[in-house]
């Protein structure tokens, strides 16, 4: 299902495929170089030269393997900085709630399986949505079928939170396709 949709998209955008590919390669190169500079900690011309050569080899390999796409360098711009603070707030609130329930002797939990719609268009958006659901304690995404995510929720409150579709809308906005 995912495979065919991405194949379709690729055929559709055959014309601007090349420039898109170059954009992803450039972004990947910048990220790789940044990681090298962060990891190495030695800033002599020789070591930085090694880094540049290594990054170039990786870029050539990704070009040859045709895997330079949004999967290896997601280009979301500044939108994550709107989404992330909201997600952190949600995670904190959910954490406190679940921690309270775990520590109460009688454990007031109410496990249930629910289905929520994922209205994101691309695979990346769906991955972000499913991961956000799992990252919020109290809900774990178990399966994905035809644009719906099967969620295991620990409490009714957590289930209602996901059913309300608030997170879905925010991730769709983050994806920014449309």
């Amino acid at each position: 299902m995912n495979q065919t949709s991405s194949d379709h998209r690729m055929a559709q955008n055959a014309s601007d495929d090349r420039t898109g590919r170059a954009r992803y390669s450039l972004a990947l190169g910048v990220v790789l170089l940044g990681i090298w500079l962060l990891w190495s900690g030695h800033y002599t011309p020789l070591v930085i030269g090694f880094g540049v050569v290594s990054c170039a080899i990786v870029l050539i390999l990704t070009r040859r393997m045709n895997i330079a796409d949004e999967e290896c360098a997601p280009l979301l711009g500044l939108r994550p900085f709107v989404y992330l603070p909201w997600l952190i707030k949600e995670i904190t609130l959910a954490n406190i709630d679940i921690a309270k329930r775990v520590l109460t002797p009688e454990m007031p939990i109410n496990p249930q399986m629910i289905r929520v719609r994922a209205s994101q268009k691309g695979d990346l958006g769906r991955v972000i949505y499913a991961n956000s659901i799992t990252l919020t304690p109290g809900t774990v995404s178990v399966d994905m079928q035809d644009g719906e995510i099967v969620v295991h929720a620990l409490t009714s409150e957590a289930a209602d939170e996901d059913k309300s579709g608030d997170m879905d809308r925010r991730v769709t906005a983050l994806e920014g396709l449309s």
Binding site: A99, L103, M107, I109, L135, P137, G138, V140
Partner: peptide, 29 residues
């Protein structure tokens, strides 16, 4: 504190799927 609570959760919660949530607490907060 949250790490230990998650550890308690993973031991106390009744079945496998609920234990996933206990692991979630330690992994996030």
């Amino acid at each position: 504190f949250f790490a230990v609570v998650g550890g308690i959760g993973i031991v106390r919660l009744p079945d496998f799927y609920t234990r996933l949530h206990g692991g979630g607490i330690t992994d996030t907060l």
